[in-house]
Amino acid sequence: MAYVITSPCIQEKAAECADVCPVDCIAEGEDQFYIDPDICIDCGACEAVCPVDAIFHEEEVPGGEEKYIQKAIQFYKND
């Protein structure tokens, strides 16, 4: 499992999450940041510093935000 960045990040891109990630698994996309699900170690550091509360554990992504799980997977497949 991994953490997922959801819609509040769209166009926000504050970057605190990328700064604190100990395994450098967060990359900036065109409209938001993404967490690489293959590298994420589930430490939760990113979730704690997100100023817009956009980061959730994959199993706790709010209803209606599930598409961001697939969006992150696609981002890293195309990278």
Rank of each mutant, 00 (worst) to 15 (best):
A14R: 10
V49P: 13
E59W: 07
P8T: 03
E30K: 04
E30L: 05
P51L: 08
Q74R: 15
A54S: 13
D79M: 09
T6W: 03
F75C: 07
A45W: 08
M1H: 08
A2T: 04
Y34M: 02
K77M: 13
E16C: 15
A2D: 11
I73V: 12
C17L: 06
A2Q: 00
K67N: 09
K77Q: 15
G44E: 04
I39W: 09
F75G: 02
I35C: 04
I55M: 00
F56C: 04
I69C: 03
I39H: 10
Y3H: 07
Y34G: 03
I55F: 01
D19H: 03
E47L: 14
P22A: 00
A27V: 03
D24H: 14
I39Q: 05
D36Y: 02
Q74K: 14
I10N: 08
K71D: 13
Q74W: 04
E30I: 11
G63A: 15
G63H: 14
E47Y: 01
C46R: 05
E12M: 05
V52N: 11
D36S: 08
D24K: 11
H57G: 03
K13A: 05
I35T: 06
Y34D: 05
A48W: 10
Y34K: 09
A27E: 15
C43D: 10
V20T: 12
C50E: 10
C25M: 04
A18S: 11
V61M: 01
A15I: 03
C43W: 07
Y76Q: 11
F56Y: 15
D31K: 08
A72P: 01
C9M: 12
F75N: 05
N78R: 15
A72Y: 12
E66M: 05
E47K: 15
I35E: 13
D24S: 08
I10S: 09
G64H: 03
K13F: 00
P37A: 04
I39N: 04
P37Y: 09
E59I: 12
F33C: 04
Y68F: 14
C50T: 13
V61Y: 01
T6A: 12
P51I: 11
E59L: 14
C9H: 11
Q70G: 06
V61H: 07
Q32E: 11
A18D: 00
F75P: 05
I26C: 06
V52A: 06
E12F: 13
P62L: 07
F33R: 03
C25A: 15
A48C: 02
C25D: 01
D53N: 07
I41K: 04
A48V: 09
F75A: 07
C50P: 14
A72R: 12
K77C: 13
V23S: 02
A18Q: 12
A72V: 08
M1P: 15
P22L: 11
P8N: 08
G29Y: 08
K67A: 09
Y68A: 03
K67H: 07
Y68M: 01
I39R: 03
I5P: 08
